[in-house]
């Protein structure tokens, strides 16, 4: 429990840093639900209507599975996805969490982080949304 509490405190501090960097700047959606964690942007003007054939700038396939929300830091978009690695065990252990990123300007394959051991997890390994503050992404 002690270590878990320490981790929670660390995450809170890092989130505060991200908030300070992003509150007033429209180029950042650095954490889950945006700069104020309300899901509200005071500057963005997204389309009201869209479909597969209307107002889609680009669409790219995401390998693996996951439900973490995308975050934006300047030109980069970050999200998490779990990519199967073929190891045996409980279903949720067969996927390697990967940090993917893309750019805002174009459709491109997701790049992923380094290979690693699949950690022990009790739900989706990549449900939480990452947070950004220069020069790191926290996952």
């Amino acid at each position: 429990m002690r270590s878990r509490a320490a981790v929670a405190a660390l995450l809170l501090a890092l989130t505060t840093l991200a908030l300070n960097a992003s509150v007033a700047d429209p180029k950042y959606w650095a954490q889950w639900r945006g700069p104020n964690m309300t899901g509200v942007s005071r500057t963005a003007k997204a389309p009201i209507e869209w479909s597969e054939t209307k107002n889609i700038k680009w669409k790219m396939e995401i390998p693996g599975r996951g439900s973490s929300s995308p975050v934006v830091w300047n030109d980069r978009i970050f999200l998490l996805t779990a990519i199967p690695v073929g190891v045996t065990g409980a279903a949720q252990h067969e996927q390697r969490p990967a940090l993917g990123f893309s750019t805002r300007q174009r459709e491109a394959p997701l790049s992923s982080g380094p290979d690693g051991e699949a950690p022990e997890v009790f739900s989706s390994p990549v449900a939480p949304t990452v947070a950004c503050t220069y020069p790191v992404v926290m996952a």
């Binding site: 997204a46 396939e61 995401i62």
Partner: peptide, 18 residues
């Protein structure tokens, strides 16, 4: 995620830039 005149939607299979 909302930025400028764009919205990014993460689906089960695709990431959309709207």
């Amino acid at each position: 995620a909302l930025i400028d005149n764009e919205m990014f939607l993460r689906g089960i299979r695709h990431l959309y830039a709207i």
